[in-house]
């Protein structure tokens, strides 16, 4: 399968400050990629390079086999930037109609407004909308050209809970329709729930690239909770265990080598009740990774 985005050893700097260093990334059709990293890690710069807004100083980048910014590539791309488009003197419907007219295979605006639950505000001026409503309009603008590839930069910021849920449902529908989606977000649970692959940027380099499961396997931190009559000392020396605490019958074991510790617990399993094993969430792993705990 030919990748939709192929980036090879991309480099970009602002003056002497290198923002991206040898970034190599390949994204296949139908994939949802979560682009994560701390502020200043290079996410938005990478996005801007992919959109053709910036030019890479070194390396190669192709979208649909074209240079970024090529008209043919633009026809197949939808973008939801962090900053909403607030144009004075025009309504939601008017701006969507203008956007639709620019694309050869645009969606029907009335249908799109209905599908995104925007019909009620269709005739309202953009300047009269709330932050959450503007975000939804920006999403509609990204979709109206019926793109094959979507770039969503912090898409749910400012949306209320219902709007966020509706948004992620829509993303799942788009995935089912075979669309390729690149999302950057600071709400990591959202990325964890929806992304096929995660690309973690740290100081302009890709610190990790792969599935969330692969990341979890690489990062073996687990929290084991159970009830037992056994003393704390019975667990302290198990392989991988970093801390053991006991409050009444309730025991908490922290391990940095989950699989090994779990294997070591097998002989005493009969003495343990109500066992729960919590693997680190993407947020937890992100915190460790961005602090450089594991490379």
């Amino acid at each position: 399968m030919k990748p939709i985005i192929q980036a090879t050893q991309l480099q970009f700097s602002y003056g002497a400050h290198a923002v991206l260093k040898d970034v190599t990334l390949s994204i296949d059709p139908g994939e949802i990629i979560g682009l994560i990293g701390e502020n200043g890690a290079g996410k938005t710069t990478l996005l801007n390079l992919m959109l053709g807004l910036f030019s890479a100083h070194r390396g190669q980048l192709h979208l649909f086999g074209q240079q970024p910014g090529a008209p043919i590539a633009k026809q197949r791309i939808g973008t939801m930037r962090q900053k909403d488009l607030v144009i004075r003197g025009v309504t939601v419907q008017e701006v969507l109609r203008l956007a639709a007219a620019q694309y050869p295979e645009a969606l029907n605006v009335t249908t799109l407004l209905k599908n995104l639950d925007l019909t009620a505000i269709a005739k309202q001026r953009l300047t009269a909308l709330s932050g959450g409503q503007l975000r939804r309009v920006t999403f509609a603008l990204a979709l109206v050209g019926n793109p094959d590839l979507l770039f969503l930069d912090e898409p749910t910021v400012g949306m209320d809970t219902n709007a966020q849920q509706a948004f992620w449902r829509r993303i799942q529908q788009l995935k089912a329709a075979g669309k390729t989606i690149v999302i950057t977000s600071h709400y990591l649970p959202e990325i964890q729930a929806v992304a096929d692959r995660i690309c973690l940027l740290r100081n302009g380099e890709i610190a990790f690239q792969g599935t969330f499961q692969a990341l979890q396997e690489q990062y073996q931190q687990v929290e084991i909770t159970c009830q037992t009559a056994l003393p704390v000392a019975a667990f302290e020396n198990l392989p991988g265990v970093t801390a053991v605490t006991k409050t009444g019958p309730r025991l908490n074991i922290s391990s940095e080598a989950g699989d090994t510790t779990l294997q070591a617990l097998v002989p005493v399993l009969a003495d343990l009740r109500q066992v729960t094993i919590k693997r680190e969430s993407l947020t937890d792993i992100f915190v460790h990774l961005t602090k450089g705990v594991i490379a």
Partner: peptide
């Protein structure tokens, strides 16, 4: 100037018609 600040120009640039 307002259009540029509001990102209208960037939005137009990203559309196929430029």
């Amino acid at each position: 100037q307002r259009d540029r600040e509001a990102g209208v120009l960037q939005w137009c640039w990203l559309s196929p018609t430029g």
